[in-house]
């Protein structure tokens, strides 16, 4: 769809807002409706729109496959790493209250935010991978 001027211009206009909204939804997940799952999907939708309009090669330029594949694992590792961190600090697995923060509530919030970031990274990259793979051409 590279020859459609309207689509190209509107995509350039829309994608930044979609990405910012996705980051907003992840970051404000514990304040309002939203969280890692929703925000990750919205971020991925921005990339997918870009890939649909500008083509797969352009998508691979802005989001290389190696980076996407690595980030999918890093998200899960971030989540599990928070659990390991709490164990190293003397608590139980995913017991956020022992995290270094001002008080109990701040520690809980810190743990939840880190975990939500992990979920968001994994969901976003896996959804991009799903689009990337399902639009793959030719035989494997």
């Amino acid at each position: 769809m590279k020859d459609q001027v309207v689509l190209r211009v509107m995509t350039k206009l829309l994608v930044p807002y979609m990405l910012v909204f996705g980051f907003y939804v992840i970051a404000h997940g514990e304040l309002g409706p939203g969280g890692g799952f929703q925000g990750g999907v919205i971020l991925a939708a921005g990339f997918i729109l870009y890939g649909i309009v500008y083509g797969k090669s352009e998508l691979h330029r802005v989001a290389p496959r190696r980076v996407i594949d690595a980030l999918a694992g890093i998200g899960v590792l971030l989540y599990a790493g928070v659990g390991v961190w709490t164990m190293l600090l003397g608590g139980r697995f995913l017991d956020y209250s022992v995290l270094p923060a001002a008080d109990y509530g701040a520690a809980e919030a810190l743990g939840m935010v880190l975990v939500e970031y992990g979920v968001g990274i994994t969901v976003c990259t896996v959804m991009i991978t799903v689009y990337d793979m399902i639009s793959e051409e030719g035989r494997p």
């Binding site: 969280g35 799952f37 999907v41 969901v123 896996v126 799903v130 399902i134």
Partner: peptide, 12 residues
């Protein structure tokens, strides 16, 4: 919430 995202993963 989690089940929806997992269901789309299984659909994928």
């Amino acid at each position: 919430l989690t089940a929806i995202v997992v269901s789309v993963s299984t659909l994928a």
